[in-house]
Amino acid sequence: MNVFTQLGQWLADPDRWSWTDPAGIPYRTVQHLWFSALALVIAALLTIPPALWLAHYRRGAFLASSAVNIGRAIPSFGLIILFWFLASRWEVDTDFWPLLLALVGLALPPLFTNTYAGVVQLDQEVVDAARGTGYRERQIMFRLELPLSSPVIVAGARVAFLQLVATVAIGAIVNDGGGLGRYIVDGFAEGARGYGEIFGGGIAVVVLALVCEGLFSLLTKLATPRGLALQQLRRAS
């Protein structure tokens, strides 16, 4: 039996399209997105406020550049295994916390770096003009710098989220949930009989990543202030 025949049989399973059965693609897609989105939100809450503050006062440049290198150097699977080992030693739930903490750790560097870079690259004359009209520093940060730098911040969130989507699939090795990656792990466990499930799980992860990429591209356009978008069009023309 070839892999495409196995894939067809695997997809023909009635439970494969269930929203409530753990074997269903919709069920595991929601589980996959839940882990990814939760980690992104937590990472954003931890990084965007301090990065905004540091960039506003032009501090922490070394920290921002170091975050880039740290983000490139951290091995995703190694981080998951580390937190799983610690959770096992401390008798903490290993089905949730190791993967979540690893995902948050992976999302921190791109969010911090892009937030910092987005604020620092703004035209300082605009900031000085706002300050001259009586804006307080907090108002400048949240009413001016944050909205104008939002396209760069969203771009960082897109990079982080796509990395999270890929890592949740890897995390299925140590997590009983694991989203769509569970199909790949279970397929390998079945040997030659599981090739169709492995193939189907891989396709599902790729499709999910492509859909998320498209949604974040749209979100980037929506997050760009109208005046900034017109300015970019004039420069391009």
Rank of each mutant, 00 (worst) to 15 (best):
M1C: 03
L146F: 13
L45Q: 06
L122F: 02
I173T: 04
R136A: 08
H56Y: 14
L40V: 09
V152K: 00
N2R: 02
G181N: 06
A160G: 03
D95H: 08
T20Y: 09
L7I: 03
S150Y: 13
G134N: 08
G194T: 08
P225Q: 13
Y116L: 00
I80T: 05
L230N: 01
V159A: 10
L99Y: 02
V165R: 04
A130I: 07
L111I: 13
R72M: 15
A189F: 14
A87L: 13
A43R: 02
G200R: 05
L210I: 15
A172L: 06
G24F: 05
P225R: 08
L33G: 02
F216D: 03
S36Q: 04
V68H: 04
T20R: 09
P151Y: 05
P75N: 11
L79A: 12
R234W: 12
F4I: 15
L164C: 11
T5N: 10
L33V: 13
L162I: 13
G156P: 02
R158N: 13
V211W: 14
V168N: 06
P98F: 06
P22Y: 13
G24Y: 02
H32Y: 09
W19D: 11
A107H: 01
A102W: 11
A209R: 08
V30R: 05
R58E: 15
I170P: 02
F85N: 10
D21N: 15
R16I: 07
A64W: 02
I184S: 05
Y116G: 00
T47I: 03
P49H: 13
V211A: 15
L210W: 15
I25W: 06
T115A: 08
P49W: 11
V68N: 07
P49T: 14
G191C: 05
E197N: 02
I81Q: 04
D176G: 00
G202Q: 12
A130C: 15
P147Q: 03
G71D: 10
V3Q: 09
A107W: 07
H32C: 05
A23V: 02
L111H: 04
L63Y: 14
I81Y: 06
L86Y: 12
N69F: 14
R235L: 07
G196A: 09
G24P: 03
T20I: 09
G8C: 04
L148G: 01
Q124L: 14
A87Y: 10
A172P: 05
Y116E: 00
S65C: 00
D13R: 03
P50Y: 12
R193F: 12
Q163R: 10
G178A: 08
G177Q: 07
V68D: 05
Y27R: 11
D21V: 02
G132I: 11
T133P: 00
L52I: 01
G178W: 09
R16P: 02
I153W: 07
T113Q: 09
F4C: 02
M1Y: 09
L164M: 11
E137C: 00
A64T: 01
E145D: 10
W34F: 14
P110N: 15
T20C: 01
V119K: 00
E197T: 05
R193W: 09
V120C: 10
I81F: 06
W10C: 00
R193K: 12
D15A: 13
Y57H: 13
I25R: 04
P147H: 05
V207R: 04
Q6E: 15
V205N: 01
F96W: 10
D186R: 07
F216Y: 08
